[in-house]
Design a protein around this nucleic acid. Structure first.
Lengths: 161, 161
DNA sequence: TTTAAAATTTAGATTAGTCTAAAAATATAA
DNA sequence: TTATATTTTTAGACTAATCTAAATTTTAAA
């Protein structure tokens, strides 16, 4: 019943961290991964072992940690989920970026591909709006969050052209 | 560093399931909890032991499983998160209810109180709109999901009154 | 009321993910 | 280049959550 290819949230975090470190520093090392994830190097080691067995990570003893093609693909998908969630939390729910960052980290392992795609589509939809400013409804929501008051606007009731 | 009162997603699921069973049947029994969560009764047993130690659950041997006041409060908060996520996924992202249900189950353990409150506020905001129909932007998004086309509407650019 | 069936509990094994402590390898500095 | 410091690896313990199998208790039926 359970997909044997499915990764635990923990393993996804390892992949994502390796991916991020490679983006930031060009390479990823055991100690850095440990630091980012707030675990000990020995934990990183055993995770790497598992991910290597799954053909997602490459690693020669005492050397850099890398991603296979498959590992890289999975990592970037997780990263994409993270990013769209971050956008949603900051641009839409107007949460503090620091909080939103932590929150996205957490939720990224729970959302399905479909939800990810829908959220992505939503932002694409917003961006394809002619105007350069935010849609009225989000502007109103911002005011509502700050003041608790709902300014009226006829865009709510008017017909679609 | 880590909050000792924090519950694992697993323990939250147990609380929530007990809560739901009590809603549905008036009482909750070990076997029903096991069935809902797709685990064995022995697993339920050890979970109950832990939750009892934390003063969240009451249970006398071979009897019904109940929630303490604190347990009930926590369970209802989880349920609230679940419900608001379900609404977001179905009403806003227009996902299939069955999928949305599963997804909400998953995400409910990851979102913070703040995110929950913001989402709640967002729906309250929508409901306080004068019109009885959905806000224009969501109507447009629905069309966009179905057709890939973005119908123009001047509500995007007009001034707030 | 005794017996059979169903539900619950206990005991003990297993797995994933973590840790500590010690050993091994690599990098750095004198 | 040798000694020291840092990093990585290994070995083995621990915890949370699960399972199986067996024992116990409760429920229902004969």
């Amino acid at each position: 019943m359970n997909n044997p290819l499915a990764l635990s949230a923990t393993m996804e975090d390892y992949l994502e961290t390796i991916y991020t470190l490679k983006e930031e520093n060009g390479v990823a090392r055991v100690g850095e991964i440990a630091e980012k994830l707030n675990v000990k190097s020995s934990s990183v080691n055993s995770a790497i072992k598992q991910l290597t067995d799954k053909n997602l990570v490459v690693h020669e003893k005492y050397g850099y940690v890398g991603l296979t093609k498959r590992g890289d693909k999975i990592a970037s998908e997780i990263k994409d989920k993270h990013n769209i969630l971050f956008r949603f939390l900051t641009e839409f729910l107007l949460l503090d970026p620091k909080e939103a960052e932590k929150e996205a980290c957490c939720i990224e392992h729970s959302i399905s591909k479909k939800t990810f795609l829908r959220l992505t589509k939503f932002f694409k939809f917003l961006e394809e709006g002619l105007s350069t400013e935010k849609p009225k409804i989000l502007q109103l929501f911002e005011v509502y969050i700050e003041t608790g008051k709902r300014i009226q606007c006829d865009c709510e009731t008017q017909e679609i052209n």
